[in-house]
Amino acid sequence: MADSIYGLMARFDSASEIFHAAKKVRDAGFKNWDCITPFPIHGLDGAMGVRRSHVPKFSLVGGLAGFTTGMSMIWFTGAFDYPLIVGGKPYFSPLFAFPIAYELTILFTAFATIAGMFILNWLPQHYHPVLKSDQITRGLDDTFYVVIEARDPKFDLIRAKALLTQSGAKEISELEA
């Protein structure tokens, strides 16, 4: 029975309701579940048991790459490929190379951060059962949903429904896979 559906989508009407429901679902031991909210709710990560994001690791790699690129580009062009004396200044110095290396650090960090966000979120993902539900319009407007996926090892349709009802869900619907 549970094979034919993607999961359960339960509606909550306020930020505090979903906050408390999220704690209950987390404590019931579910792993493959999510909250759909129109805006990031302060503290909901903790209530869901979501760990700190890994995006900063991407950013760090990007930043280091940018700085290295800037410095080595200026060394390569000015001191290696075509050394040319301009204004009696040295062929290469980290001082005059710094502004450009600094800007490239920021540029590469920005790209890496955004790439990290997309990769960790598996975006773009234009098809998703949640998006197929017509409730998503309200989920991005003023309503909050808890989605428990059927593939979760602890998923049992009747018990999951009971848990969501007990957590204060206003309406529970089954999502097509």
């Binding site: 999220a22 999510d34 909250c35 759909i36 909210t37 129109p38 805006f39 990031p40 709710i41 909901l44 990560d45 869901m48 979501v50 700190r52 994001s53 890994h54 995006v55 900063p56 951060t113 955004i114 990290g116 966000m117 960790l120 979120n121 975006l123 998703h128 949640v130 998006l131 998503i136 989920g139 991005l140």
Partner: peptide
């Protein structure tokens, strides 16, 4: 899709 797991990475980014 407004997923909070996405929001978590999004807000960090």
């Amino acid at each position: 899709r407004g997923s909070n797991r996405h929001w978590s990475n999004y807000e960090m980014a």
